[in-house]
Design a protein around this nucleic acid. Sequence first.
DNA 1: GCGAATACTGGACAGTCTTCAAATATTCGT
DNA 2: ACGAATATTTGAAGACTGTCCAGTATTCGC
Lengths: 217, 217
Amino acid sequence: MILAPSRPGIYARGSETVDQILKAALDVLIDEGADAFTLRRIAARCDMKVGNVSYHFPRKEMLIQVMLDEMLESYDKLLEEMVRKPGLTAEERLKLVIILCLEDIQTKRTTHLFTELWALANQSEFVADRVRLFYSKVHEVIGEYVAQINPALAPDEVHSVALFISAAMEGSTPFLGHQKPWAAKMPVFTALAAMSFVHLAKTVTSRDLAGLMTEAA
Amino acid sequence: MILAPSRPGIYARGSETVDQILKAALDVLIDEGADAFTLRRIAARCDMKVGNVSYHFPRKEMLIQVMLDEMLESYDKLLEEMVRKPGLTAEERLKLVIILCLEDIQTKRTTHLFTELWALANQSEFVADRVRLFYSKVHEVIGEYVAQINPALAPDEVHSVALFISAAMEGSTPFLGHQKPWAAKMPVFTALAAMSFVHLAKTVTSRDLAGLMTEAA
DNA sequence: GCGAATACTGGACAGTCTTCAAATATTCGT
DNA sequence: ACGAATATTTGAAGACTGTCCAGTATTCGC
């Protein structure tokens, strides 16, 4: 794994400044896109001089890496919060995760950040690495419920189903996410997803997952 | 709809040059990403001087718009080719479209182009407009088969199911697309998609689509 | 093949960008 | 509260960007 440089800021003031820079950087990426992601715009966003941003993050790449790591960590926490719901069956938990994920996708933050991230991952090994790491955790969470719902599945088969559910949900982002053309249909998408994916988890067999893909061509 | 400027190039030579520029521009976007999408890189890619590119496309935005329109038109053709398969039932056709779409997602071209497009659509109204238009056609094609498979559904309900199937498939792009971390699992993803989506189309009812989303929270 | 329309060259322009170094201001352990 | 460590400002370098234009070459209808 590619390590991100440690977060700068020794004095209290410096640390706070770093906070502001990182928040401003994330805001610029969300509100104005990767194209506008420049030190000048970030500095302007938090009422600073470019030189100051450049002092705390000597290379722009460092800023990107620290920002991405902190951002994905916050999503990690969000994910863990979803897990801690007591008194629910595996099926109910899976349904809940689906609902909460799709809810989150509707936020401007998630809609914009992740579409940008998928594009950046095409060129940046660092971004690709972090995105992969994050979704591995998502697959783990979903996979845990799938395994409980359908104990006959082998671990790799469980992962395949989790990957399918996760990817299919994420696919709603560019189409039903924040201010996207079919955003109004997110409730019905959620209903279909909950129904369809839970049914899949319940009924899928090792035979189905053998990847035969027989007829139909 | 936002109109794109008409394609430049009057003489045979000029028209061919425009071809080369548009191809080079697309190649740069696919191979090097939106960050490297500059007139100079595009010019270098087709062995031209910047001034020449700038002559044929006085504004960079014109180049983007013409390029996007030609590119999506080629995907339109691809889509129409999928439809023209004789002697198949609606179910077989739906399965085939799923398989062909997921096959196409595995190409570098589609994986990179569409992830970039989804990101660009966050900021550019023109890109957002064209993307919406394109997927509307996709929904139409899928919806036609869904309607045949499940005649009880109302037109809007058909569209909801088509939207779900389309979005869920597209979601595989950042994860199982060209050189993505779980690309090797595309066969099993395809098998699950074909099975799951066809089953959904067959069994979904108006009640399911009412968007009640009762319990589980 | 003449000549006007079109295509292409090379350079200049005003911006922008990241990065850096020197000068100044602030913080905080002592 | 002194002073070294840290933070911030300022200014500038060097490279990049899209756009424009005068000059030159090519095309193609007549």
